[in-house]
Structure formats: structure tokens, C-alpha cells
Amino acid sequence: MILDDLVAATRIRLKRHQEKVSLAQLKRRVEQQSADENPDFLSILNNPGLHVIAEVKKSSPSKGTIVSNFPYLQIAETYDKAGTDAISVLTEPDYFNGHLNYLKEISHKVTAPILRKDFTIDPYMIYEAKANGASIVLLIVAILTDHQLREYRELAEELGMQAIVEAYTEDEVNRALQSDAKIIGINNRNLKDFHVDFNNSLKLKSLVPANIPVIAESGIQTQADVAKLAGAGFKGVLIGETLMRAADKQALIQAFKASTAVTDSKATK
């Protein structure tokens, strides 16, 4: 299964990082950081409408290289200028060609909150995310215990960050709720085989109480997709490949945001 391979690779990478920079050193770096001036992501999600999280991603296990030309700073700045509500940055190097430096460098160039998109399996990675400019971390239910889900979310919040708790099945949504997740992501992609079903998020959305913002992830390609999710009550969409392949990323983000505005207008009539 692809997910097992990703976690195994993450464990090896984590050990290398810990040998280079100790947890104590990371904690000191976090303590020395100035107060985070970026907007609070949970507050953004609780504003009216559906919010766009634009992803900086070069490759994926299912698609291989998505783009060969990868000016990641320019891409992130384009997203920011387009008014995206958050920016997701892949830091997983073995299967997604991500890098922690992308996160660090992008954080100095944009004002939008930044999600470290990775396979968080240890508190070290949460401190590492914070030290390198992230204001959001991803917690994947399928790879964490119930104790870890709660512990890691609480740690992220103690460090002034938010956690997106990601689920793919009904059982995982229930586990996310039991962990008192403040934000839930529903993935349309099965991380075990990378099959995508756009309707997965629509099917599971009703399990989440209305007071908890839900983000749809993966397989979102068109304005019609975004409008459908907005109409179903989602508070955010995470879009990667579609934006990475777009010739005019700024125009596409603005089109996505316009399609949600139309839905909001209809809902108030």
C-alpha cells in the first residue's frame, strides 16, 4: 500500500532530521520566533463562504511529475496575490519531491497562512513545521492513534497553529470528531491506492456537526466542483494538481472564489 510506504519513508527521514537538529534546538528556535502575524486559519474558515487552499506541489505518487518547471516561490506569491485563503506546501521529498526549505522560504514571501503538507508521525515534525514558518499542520487519521490525534492537535494549538484532521472513511471521520478536531478535512483520495472519488467528501460531510468547518481535498477540478461543495456546506477546498497545471493560476483562483460567491448569493435569497 502506498500509505505504508510513505510512512516508512517518513520514519527514515525523521531520524535523519533528528540527528541533524535536536528537538531541544527546534524548541529554542520556536521560542525565539516573533509573534505570528499571519491571520488565524480557523477564524478565516469561520468567515462566510468557501475558502480556497492552493497547493504548491511538484509531483505525486499517482501522477509522477506534475510540472517540470517549478518556481515554487513565484507560484506561492501568485497564489497570495490572487487572494487564496491559505497555501499548502508539500515537504515530503521521496514521493512528492517536496522539501522543508520550500516551506521556510515561502513563509517569508506570503501573508496567507501556510499548511505543512506532510505525513506527521511525531511531535518533532510539529515543532519543525512551526520553526519553518507553518501555521497549519496536517494530521492524517489513518496513520495516527486516537491518543496521537488529540496530543498532536493540542500541541499544534499550544504553538499557535491549527491542525487539519484528515479522514477518508466514516470511521475516520468519527475518530476525528472524538479527538475534538477543530477543523476536519475529508479526502477524496484513498491514500492506500490513490484512487480518487469526488463524491467521497459529499457523502461524509453530513457526519460532521455544522459548527466544525470541513475542507474537501483532492479531485477538485472545475468551478462547478467548487460550487457544488460550497452548496453542500463545505468551508474550504484544497486544490493542488489543477492549479499546478493551470497556465493562469491567479485567474483560476479568482474564478473558483467567484463561483463560491455566486453560491453564497443564491443561498441568501
Rank of each mutant, 00 (worst) to 15 (best):
Y102K: 03
L243T: 07
R189S: 05
Q254I: 09
V226E: 03
D197Y: 08
K257Q: 15
V173P: 02
Y102H: 12
V173H: 02
S60W: 11
S34R: 07
S34W: 02
D264V: 12
G233Q: 05
K269P: 12
V165K: 12
I66V: 15
D180W: 03
S59H: 14
A54H: 10
I184T: 10
L155T: 13
I212T: 04
L155V: 11
E157S: 13
V67R: 15
K117I: 01
G185W: 13
Y79R: 00
V137D: 04
E151F: 13
A82H: 09
T260A: 15
S22T: 11
E77M: 12
D118E: 13
G98D: 09
A24Y: 07
V67I: 11
A82T: 04
T268H: 15
E172N: 04
E31I: 03
I220C: 06
I87L: 09
A82R: 06
V237T: 06
Y79P: 00
G219F: 05
V56N: 07
S201N: 03
L155W: 11
N97A: 09
I140Y: 11
A131Q: 02
A176G: 11
I212V: 10
I75S: 00
M125N: 05
K109S: 06
S135I: 06
K130V: 02
Y95D: 08
L73T: 11
E158L: 15
D197L: 03
E154I: 13
D36V: 12
I53Y: 02
S22P: 05
G219M: 11
Y102S: 07
P213A: 09
A8G: 06
L50A: 01
P39I: 06
N174W: 03
A129V: 08
K130M: 00
K130G: 01
D171A: 13
K58A: 11
I114M: 02
L207G: 04
N174D: 04
K117D: 02
I114G: 00
Q221V: 09
T263P: 14
A163W: 14
I121H: 13
L191S: 10
Y95K: 10
A210L: 10
L115P: 04
I53Q: 10
K205T: 00
I239L: 03
N187D: 12
F234V: 01
Q25I: 02
S43P: 00
V237L: 08
R189M: 06
L207T: 02
H51C: 02
K20H: 09
